[in-house]
């Protein structure tokens, strides 16, 4: 390297070099990278264990460059509990989607949060079941068409319910120390999301930390990546507002 050359970008060691299977325009890759950069910046790769969920990010165990455990559907917070209670010296995170965390894993996430498990949960919310082919998720917006709400999610006559707002729901608990919702839709959003993820990891050993990320699913939504980003900004963010719902250190 000559004196003029300067590294301005590199691959985080928190990620493996394996190509991901994510669809073009999907923001899982962005979320993965933010977690990996955080692990690198904190220098904790060798003492971090991550939980991969069931859903689109099921193969996350192949993408993160630290020790990984694949969990059954929705149980990542329970598995993370088992890891952290056995080895409190490790950094432990789970990476989960909306079907995994807010539907089948609702009991596990609420109770891990309520016990104050010293883990970080990264929650990627794109309002749909991606891997199984675009079915309704607990976070699917009212009126949104999915393969199991072909006429749009109808909380009325069809009894399909309303979107569940996990950050707000968990913020009703006394125990968690950090709960935030960020988005990945613009470069500015991504920088803010990165700061939130880093703060969650930094606060991890004081209690339960949770970062919800509003993301997209161009394939499941039937849109181009840029249409998806616009649509998420217009439709999802009003239902899932960005903000910090708990930061006990800052009195929030």
């Amino acid at each position: 390297m000559s004196a003029e050359e300067k590294i301005v970008f590199s691959y985080p060691t928190g990620l493996t070099t394996k190509n991901t299977h994510y669809c073009p325009g999907c923001l899982h890759g962005v979320a993965h990278r933010l977690v990996a950069e955080t692990i690198d910046e904190l220098g904790i790769r060798e003492k971090t264990v991550g939980m991969a969920p069931v859903g689109c990010s099921v193969l996350a165990y192949e993408y993160f460059g630290c020790d990984m455990v694949q969990a059954s559907h929705g149980r990542a917070p329970a598995v993370a509990t088992g890891v952290k209670r056995a080895r409190p010296d490790l950094y432990v995170f789970s990476y989960q989607g909306d079907g995994d965390l807010a539907s089948i894993g609702l009991a596990e996430i609420i109770h891990a949060a309520n016990r104050g498990e010293k883990i970080t949960v990264i929650f990627y919310n794109n309002a749909i079941y991606g891997m199984t082919g675009g079915q309704m998720a607990p976070t699917t917006l009212v009126g949104m068409k999915t393969t199991t709400t072909p006429t749009g999610r109808d909380p009325g006559e069809r009894g399909a319910g309303n979107p569940i707002r996990m950050a707000e729901l968990l913020a009703t608990l006394f125990t968690p120390v950090y709960i935030t919702r960020q988005s990945l839709l613009t470069p500015q959003d991504i920088l803010k999301a990165k700061r939130a993820i880093k703060r969650a990891f930094q606060l991890q050993n004081t209690g339960f930390t949770f970062v919800e990320l509003v993301g997209t699913c161009p394939t499941g939504w039937g849109m181009t990546p840029s249409e998806s980003n616009d649509w998420a900004g217009e439709k999802m963010v009003p239902v899932f507002p960005i903000g910090v719902f708990r930061d006990t250190e800052k009195g929030i």
Binding site: V49, S72, G82, H111
Partner: peptide, 13 residues
Amino acid sequence: VAASNMIYGSAAV
């Protein structure tokens, strides 16, 4: 369900 997944986690370490 959760208890048995917790033992999965502790056994993993």
